[in-house]
C-alpha cells in the first residue's frame, strides 16, 4: 500500500513540474532546460530553512516560491534576449551553474553528500509524516498548480503566450510587451517548480544534487512533449504515464539494474516515436516541427 502511495506522490510532484514547464515550453514556446534547477532551488531552500532555522512549514513554502521566482527572473531577464536554440543553450548554462552550486558549496549545501535529516513539517498542529499525509499535501499543491495553470492558459494572458509562441512580431505589432509576458511566465513556472522541490525535500527528508541535474530537466521536458505541449491535461497524463512506466516494468519481474537502463531506452524510443508519428504528443495542440 505504501509503495502505491509512494508512486502517487511521485506522480503528483511530476504533475507540478510538468504542468509548470508546459506554461513555459508548451504555451510560450520557450524550450527551457533549466526546470530542474528551479525544482532544486525549492528543495534546497526548504531543506536549509527546515534544518538550520526550524522555520514553520508555511513560511518555508512562501520563501521557496519567492526564491524560485526570483531565480526565475534572474535567469529569465538575461536569457530572454536570446531566441530558439540560443535560448535553450543559455538555460542549459544556468542549469549547469545551479547544479555546480549545489554540488560544490559544501559548507552550505552539503555538496555531494547532500542534506540529510530534513524534519517532518507540521501545519497548524497537523504533523505531516505518513505517506497518506504527503499524498494529501502533494494533491493540494498539484491541484492548485493545475487550477492556476488552466486559468492562465485559458485567459487572455494565455492567449498572448500562445501568440508569442507563434509570432512575436505579430504580438508586438498589436501592442503586447512580449518581454514582460515571457519573464512573467518564467517566474510563475519557476515558482511552481520550487513548490515541487519543497514537497520532494520534505517527503524524502534527504536531498542531494544529482536529483537536480540536466537529465532531470530533460525528463520533465519529455513529459511535456509526450503528454502534449500546450495542453495542461496532456502533462498530467504524461506525468502519470512516464512515472508509472518503470514501476510497471518492475512488476513484470525485470531486475532493478536492468529496469533502470530499459527505462532510459523506453523514454528515448517514446520521444523518437512521438516526433515521428505524433509530434504534438498525446493531447497537445502544438508541435515543434514548425
Amino acid at each position: 500500500m505504501e509503495y502505491f502511495l509512494h508512486i502517487l506522490i511521485l506522480i503528483g510532484i511530476y504533475v507540478i513540474l510538468s504542468v509548470s514547464l508546459n506554461l513555459i515550453v508548451g504555451y510560450t514556446g520557450l524550450l527551457s532546460v533549466a526546470h530542474a534547477a528551479f525544482y532544486g532551488v525549492g528543495a534546497y531552500v526548504a531543506a536549509l530553512l527546515a534544518i538550520k532555522f526550524h522555520s514553520p512549514f508555511l513560511v518555508n513554502i512562501i520563501l521557496a516560491v519567492v526564491f524560485g521566482g526570483l531565480l526565475g527572473a534572474m535567469v529569465g531577464i538575461p536569457t530572454l534576449r536570446t531566441r530558439d536554440d540560443y535560448f535553450m543553450v543559455t538555460t542549459f548554462v544556468f542549469q549547469v551553474i545551479i547544479f555546480s552550486i549545489f554540488n560544490n558549496w559544501v559548507s552550505f549545501t552539503g555538496g555531494p553528500m547532500g542534506l540529510p535529516g530534513i524534519p517532518a513539517p507540521s501545519f497548524f498542529g497537523w504533523r505531516i509524516e505518513s505517506h497518506l499525509d504527503y499524498l494529501i499535501v502533494v494533491l493540494v499543491f498539484s491541484l492548485l498548480v493545475v487550477i492556476l495553470s488552466l486559468r492562465i492558459g485559458h485567459s487572455p494572458f494565455g492567449r498572448v503566450l500562445k501568440a508569442i509562441r507563434e509570432d512575436e512580431i505579430f504580438s508586438q505589432a498589436h501592442g503586447k510587451n512580449i518581454a514582460f509576458f515571457k519573464i512573467a511566465i518564467f517566474v510563475i513556472g519557476a515558482g511552481m517548480a520550487s513548490v515541487a522541490g519543497l514537497v520532494y525535500a520534505y517527503y524524502i527528508s534527504f536531498i542531494e544534487p544529482t536529483s537536480f541535474t540536466v537529465m532531470e530537466s530533460i525528463f520533465i521536458i519529455s513529459i511535456v512533449i509526450i503528454g502534449g505541449a500546450g495542453n495542461i491535461w496532456g502533462s498530467i497524463v504524461g506525468a502519470t504515464f512516464l512515472v508509472a512506466l518503470p514501476e510497471a516494468l518492475r512488476f513484470i519481474g525485470m531486475p532493478n539494474a536492468i529496469a533502470a537502463n530499459i527505462q532510459q531506452l523506453i523514454y528515448g524510443a517514446l520521444l523518437v516515436l512521438c516526433m515521428l508519428y505524433r509530434p504534438q504528443g498525446f493531447l497537445g495542440e502544438y508541435s515543434f516541427d514548425k
Binding site: S155, P156, F157, R159, V160, A163, S171, H174, G175, K176, A184, I188
Partner: peptide, 12 residues
Amino acid sequence: LLAFQNQAGERL
C-alpha cells in the same frame, strides 16, 4: 481577440 488593448485578462 488578441488584438484588443488594455485587456483585464492580460494582467496577472
